[in-house]
Simulated assay, not measured.
Amino acid sequence: MLTGRYDNSVVKETLLDPAARQERGDVTGPLNYLLVGSDQRAAAGPEADQRSDTIMIAHLPAGLDRAYLISVPRDLLVEIPPAPASGYPGGPDKINSAFQYGGGGQGGTRLLSATLTRLTGIRFDGAALVNFAGFQRAIDLLGGVRMCVDTPVRSIHTKTVFNPGCHQMDGAQALDYARQRYDLPNGDFDRQRHQQQLLRAMMDKVTTTDMLRNPLRLDQVIRAVGSSFTVDTNGVPLEEMIFAMRRIRSDAVRGIQLPSRSEMIDEVSYVLLEEPANTLFDSMRNTDLDSWARDNPKWVNRL
């Protein structure tokens, strides 16, 4: 079965800190998964600049027929727990620093998960560490994705100008666009929304084309995605997770911006939580995120 081959194609590691792990081994909703994106998978030591580029929590309500993507700002000021293995004593810093202080890779994701649990009170049902190089190849094997640009933006990496309108993008273009945060009206908050859009666009391509009926092409995509993922399934076989989430369609994916604001502290730019964040975390723990989204439309992203 393809699901079995996929299970064998991904790297499995312990990505969740014990304090951040949900103590159950099933796929009965609601579920919360930690998604971390980085350019490097392997640890290169705490002195290397390995800050996580993307941090998301995927929340699946009880019916497992829809999903919320909650983006965590990379500059969010948090209290990071100590990391004895790397010698980091703990303290206040930007949340994406937790990945670096944990040594990147497996250790970095564990420290990041512990930081998020301390902040939110949420324990995770699993985690995935994504390497962007493999992700780019997966988008190309999908035949590219359709991304809608709402404001002109020039890439700081390639100098490409992304003009307003809906465009078909290959893997390099889509990832380049989704990682821009400069010269955008809302800076990093727009970048978070664009990354949510990219995940939805990939889901849309899989579910609206003949991909599921083309075993050879599907197998290529599965292997490309698998090569870019390190996962912690919390003891659940990966094929069971895939089967349990089979009813989620791209139009049932919604994006959430973590209620927060930017602020300069000692000439350093940070992001600070705003009051609705506490009720968001409560809703995620108490399985009522649908109601929170209806009551807080300001923080729901249009994907």
Rank of each mutant, 00 (worst) to 15 (best):
G235D: 05
A277K: 08
N214V: 03
L258V: 06
V27E: 09
P152N: 04
A133R: 12
E239A: 14
S227G: 15
N301H: 07
V36P: 07
F229H: 01
L303F: 15
G90W: 07
V300I: 15
Q22P: 01
G63L: 11
V11F: 10
Q22F: 12
S250N: 11
L280E: 01
A44C: 00
G134P: 04
I70C: 13
R247H: 13
Y182N: 11
L60D: 02
L142W: 01
T109F: 05
N214I: 00
D17Q: 09
V236S: 03
A293I: 00
S260Q: 02
P215H: 00
Y101M: 11
D75P: 09
R285C: 06
A127M: 02
A114Y: 00
V72W: 01
N131E: 14
I265E: 12
E47L: 11
A19L: 13
M284N: 04
R21M: 08
M284Y: 02
T117A: 10
D39R: 00
V27T: 13
D288F: 09
R146D: 14
R223L: 14
M245C: 10
A19D: 13
D176F: 08
R181E: 07
E47N: 12
G235K: 05
R193L: 09
W292G: 02
D170V: 04
E267T: 12
Q168G: 12
R217Q: 12
N296A: 09
L216M: 13
C148M: 09
I57L: 12
Q168N: 13
P152D: 06
L258N: 03
I122D: 04
Q192M: 14
T230K: 04
G25H: 15
R41I: 09
T28N: 14
T233Q: 08
L2K: 12
P237Q: 03
P152G: 05
D26L: 04
M211W: 08
L289A: 12
N186I: 02
G105W: 07
M264R: 12
R41V: 09
S291M: 11
G165P: 09
A43S: 15
L129Y: 06
Q196Y: 05
Q106N: 11
N8C: 04
D210T: 11
S269H: 08
G255W: 01
T208N: 10
G235Y: 02
P297A: 01
F189V: 05
G91R: 05
Q22L: 12
F189W: 01
G171H: 06
L112Q: 07
D53M: 05
Q257T: 14
E240A: 12
I248N: 05
Q257W: 09
P164M: 07
V221Y: 06
D53E: 06
Y182H: 15
V72E: 03
F162Y: 15
L129R: 09
M245I: 00
T207G: 03
D183H: 14
L238K: 03
A44Y: 14
E239M: 10
T117I: 08
P30C: 08
R302S: 15
R66F: 07
P259Q: 04
T279A: 14
D39M: 10
R254L: 13
L34T: 04
D176M: 06
L142D: 03
T109P: 05
E13G: 07
G102L: 08
L272T: 10
L116Y: 00
T279S: 15
P89V: 04
